[in-house]
Amino acid sequence: MIDRYLEQVAECINAMASFVRADIEGRQQSDLEEIALQAHTAESKADDLRREIQIFLFGRALFPESRGDVLGLLEAVDRVPNQADNVIGMILRQGISMPVEWATLWLNQVEAAQKCSLKLVEAVRTLFIDYRGAIDLSDQVNTLESQSDTAERNLISSIFNSEMPTAEKILLRDLVEASGSVADRAEDASDRVRIIAVKRQN
């Protein structure tokens, strides 16, 4: 069940990156809406599966302490696809669009957040296979989050150094911060992965 949950999380994150790529490429609105729907469906399925896992864990399996650890971790992980869905919503519903001159930087940042989040998914999966390996993967999530942070800072500086009206700059900054937040949340969840694994190394 956890594997299926993580698959949905990964699908939602990949859909966010595909959506941004498609937006930059200037694809048709219907294509964008289709990808947005994929992301939203994956995010909803992940939510449903998380609830099923909660019920399963309360019914049986695991020590109360471990139950708390796993439930807390899943809640932290769940915030990642939620944020990915929010990013898509900002572009699709609020009509915020990244100008061409920053398209590459923007895509780099989103891909960094995607890599970071997918590494988190790998770390969580490893926790349920061999928890010793999860610590190293959690460290890798931190490194990728730093890369996403750097890309985010560079992009925001570049936006604010331009001649664009301030209101637009603020909207773009919000969008960049929102996609950066995907990586931030992945890092928060990976911190929990590390704690869970380290605690069990006695």
């Binding site: 471990s66 349920f128 296979i129 061999d130 928890y131 010793r132 069990r200």
Partner: peptide
Amino acid sequence: VYALLRMLLNRVGMSILTRDNLLW
């Protein structure tokens, strides 16, 4: 006992669920 069990548990790769069942 602590040193021995820690060595055994850390030597064998397992999921946190298996570890819990084993400890139980």
